[in-house]
Write a protein that binds this DNA or RNA. Structure first.
Lengths: 193, 193
DNA sequence: CTCTTTCTTGAATGTGCATTCAAGATACTC
DNA sequence: GAGTATCTTGAATGCACATTCAAGAAAGAG
């Protein structure tokens, strides 16, 4: 017997970074070897192939982002304040102009989902889960009486998510702090209204 | 003497379609040959290389979208009504689930801009121009007194564009007519407010 | 009709890549 | 400490691809 030597989480986060920096197609096994420290054979042993590594990286990304989400909403503030913090964090990521802070889901969605049904499905599910999580938070805000009871929390979640997608895309060509903050502020206001 | 036989616009639109369907990296010269009807040699003669073909396709896309934009705003309605028509058209494109109706600018932005400064620049310029065009339309609406004089038309344009980006991304995982129309409707209302 | 110029053709080239695999290394078992 | 099972290594493989190029075709000039 003998156990694998590498730390799967670390490897997957390194792969995430590589894919986020160069995109899936342009990230070669060479790049992945350099990024993860794993030799081709090990990668193929652990993840079947490059596509398998992407799928595993997507799953790790989901876990990480999910934990981050819970972090934001476990703060001792009202749900709406936490929501604003979450949004501000998105803006901060945009301003940093650091590709590795982008969203791997939407990045992969754009590049490959159309060509690969399984990946499309995985990404759709993950984004649906996020949407649902937002809806729950809006439902919570309703109970905290910070938004009206007549609100369609499903719609609010969709609109909020749409705003985040838009913000991230917009920032890719115009990463100006003031403008992005203004956009986020209006998005937040519009969701509350 | 002898003139080139192919119709450059047709070729570029075919290339656009190919790139929109498979993405840049996964579109092989084989695919481009099939799509455009041009043999490799001709493509290299006319556009230098695959990257040159993409740049030319991006330019053609800009021209086509620009003409389409003018179409919408030359309708004999108020500027705001025309703006709503434009937005409804975006939604219709999203609902169609036809990749070739997606935005080549944002698609290319996601896949390659980070790796290629020139392409990044070209796309940024084109999207800035679109943003400016929207700002002008909002300015026009101001003069038509359909939006308040105190509005920051630059901000409105950015918010509207952000919404369109978000809508398009959202539709990639949830192309449901009712939801998209609802999102577009709120976006329109929020811009007017 | 001939010559010249330019365009078209598509097979050939070489490169870069994902993937494989057999030899070597390491840890665990008894 | 010998044996075995599993992991690691990285060079070898073969394929797919972008790009080139020389021969062939067509158009215009004179």
């Amino acid at each position: 017997m003998r156990n694998a030597e590498f730390d799967k989480e670390k490897v997957l986060r390194a792969a995430m970074h590589a894919f986020l920096t160069k995109g899936y197609a342009k990230t070669s096994m060479q790049d992945l070897k350099k990024a993860t420290g794993l030799h081709p054979g090990s990668i193929y042993c652990a993840f079947e192939n490059k596509r398998g590594l992407l799928l595993a990286a997507l799953e790790q990304y989901r876990l990480d982002r999910s934990a981050e989400f819970e972090q934001f909403f476990s703060a001792s503030e009202s749900t709406l304040v936490n929501l604003k913090s979450y949004l501000d964090n998105v803006v901060a990521e945009c301003i940093s102009c650091d590709n590795t802070q982008a969203c791997l889901m939407t990045k992969a969605l754009n590049e490959i989902a159309e060509q690969d049904e399984e990946i499309q499905k995985v990404i759709s599910q993950n984004l649906s889960t996020l949407q649902l999580a937002f809806a729950e938070k809006f439902e919570q805000a309703k109970q905290e009486k910070t938004i009206g009871v007549e609100k369609d929390t499903g719609h609010l979640a969709r609109y909020f998510l749409m705003g985040i997608y838009g913000l991230r895309t917009f920032a890719q060509t115009h990463p100006q702090e003031h403008e992005l903050k203004q956009l986020a502020e209006q998005l937040y206001q519009d969701v509350l209204r």
